[in-house]
Amino acid sequence: MDPTGMDLTGAAYWLPIVWAVLAATAIFIYVVLDGFDLGLGMLFLAEPDKKHRNIMVQTIAPVWDGNETWMIFGGAALYGVFPNAYATILPALYLPVLIMLFALIIRGVAFEFRSRMHTQQAQNLWDIGFCGGSLVASLMQGIILGTLVSGIRIEDNKFAGSSFDWLAPFPIFCGLAVACGYALLGATWLIWRTASDLQTTMRKWAGILSVAMLVMIAAVSAWTPALHVTYMQHWTTWPRILYVAPVPVAVIALAILMLQALRGKTSRRIPFFCALGWFFLSFSGLGINIWPYIVPPSMTIWQASSPPASQKFLLAGTVFLLPLILAYTAYAYHVFRGTVNEHSESYH
């Protein structure tokens, strides 16, 4: 189905566009909310002080279930709105998806279990599970993204590649980049939400991870256009270049801001939002690259779509429910705002 051959005013044309934007928004919200959550997990073992570990966990304890729910929403929305993409991507990425799920299970229960253990060894074991699970889940999310961007072979409307297509240099590099980015989000989140020694340590980590992330953003940006001719065209043909040109400039502007915030020790929330800014820009750049494909290089958002009756039905509720969800999620964060230290009440 070629979008140019479609009725541009028909629901079958614009509904998938609306849903593509909504789905991208939902994925970004997931990255915003669960990114620092997973990142914090990765930094867990880097912080040997038990007291500090408990504080780290305490900053996310009341909200982690909600953060992970966005991942469930991603699966459900894809299933209902782009079922052909859902039915192609998941078998194609069967192993990385399942490894990610295993890792998320381990870190999720480790979170609850670690504080209920009666021996130090058992607690250490679940601490390792929390850290390792967070790391593996992050790596797999990057690998899934990288494999998708590299392209998935489809024949007969079905996945036709091999089980190990994802074990390639580009996806693995993307995995490292996402893990590094999440760790940065975790470190900057802790700069915002904690104080004293722990905050100082996290400033150091944020500095190292910022440099690493910048290098990785540059590398992925240079690598991606080389994957497909169409990607290259996005970055070299006029007037498309107009949309993408501000992206690198903004990345550098944020880097300067981040550096000042980490050094100047001024506002503690700036580094977190700088890191989010990097994610937003990388994510937008990626969107521009693969548009209008949802499973590059051959399945567009229109080909992946469920019938308009399905997309309309879900959209009608989403318009009201999504703002409501964001409102009470914000309220939950508001209730548990403020710096967390070992004297804070609630949880550990």
């Binding site: 304890a61 009341p62 909200v63 279930d65 909600g66 992970e68 729910t69 469930i72 929403f73 459900a76 929305a77 894809l78 299933y79 209902g80 709105v81 079922p83 859902y86 039915a87 469920s306 019938p307 009756a309 399905s310 039905f313 879900l314 509720g317 989403t318 429910l321 999504l322 969800i325 009470y328 999620t329 309220y331 939950a332 209730v335 548990f336």
Partner: peptide
């Protein structure tokens, strides 16, 4: 998927988020 996906989507939006949002 065109039938069951939206139902699952509504489950997440009307229930899962509600539970997780107020669980903390």
């Amino acid at each position: 998927g065109p039938i069951l996906g939206p139902l699952l989507g509504y489950e997440v939006m009307t229930a899962f988020f509600l539970e997780a949002g107020f669980l903390g």
